[in-house]
Computed example of a mutant assay.
Amino acid sequence: MLEIARFLLPDAPERVAPFSHAVRAGDFLFVTGQMPTLPGGGHRMVEGGIEAQTRQVIGNLRTVLAGCGAAWERTVFARVYLTEFARDYAAMNAIWEASFPPGGLPGRTCVGVTGLAVGALVEIDLVVAM
């Protein structure tokens, strides 16, 4: 039977809904979409536009991965959600690409949405190989 482990991490960003920060199923870790919220700040978001929010989301994802014993570079797939797709797509992409080593980009889907929790501009979830 496939072993499943659920992670609720005390050092990870405060959850904005009832979910696990991540769930490990076999050799894969499924990381819940992270928001651009500040550590220890409840649901308070980082100030600034898409660049600052994308950096914060990536930082929050890295925090969750570290708490699960996983590495950012082992990301195999991501989903990115943007509330202002046409305006923010290029800027988000530049930060996203720079966060991985050359040739190390995961598969990805990016979609425009009408809204995200806490009024965020961006949310990203991951699938990571353990």
Rank of each mutant, 00 (worst) to 15 (best):
M1D: 10
L2E: 15
E3C: 05
I4Y: 06
A5F: 14
R6T: 08
R6Q: 11
F7A: 04
F7Y: 15
L8P: 08
P10G: 06
P10T: 04
P10M: 05
P10H: 02
A12T: 01
E14A: 14
E14Q: 15
V16L: 14
V16M: 11
A17V: 14
F19G: 10
F19L: 13
H21G: 08
V23P: 07
R24G: 05
R24H: 10
R24V: 03
F28G: 00
L29H: 01
T32K: 07
T32R: 07
G33A: 15
Q34D: 11
G40D: 13
R44L: 14
M45Y: 05
G49H: 10
G49K: 11
I50P: 01
I50N: 01
I50K: 03
I50M: 01
A52W: 09
Q53N: 07
Q56A: 07
V57N: 00
I58E: 09
G59V: 05
N60F: 07
N60C: 09
L61G: 07
L61W: 02
T63Y: 11
V64R: 05
L65Q: 04
G67N: 04
W72I: 06
E73A: 03
F77L: 11
A78L: 13
A78Y: 05
R79C: 06
L82Y: 03
F85Q: 02
F85L: 13
A86F: 09
D88R: 10
A90Q: 13
A91L: 12
M92S: 02
A94T: 08
I95H: 00
S99H: 05
P102Y: 01
G103L: 04
G104L: 02
L105G: 01
T109M: 14
T109C: 12
G115S: 15
G115K: 08
V118R: 07
G119T: 06
G119D: 09
V122K: 00
V122E: 03
I124K: 01
I124F: 00
I124T: 03
D125M: 04
A129D: 05
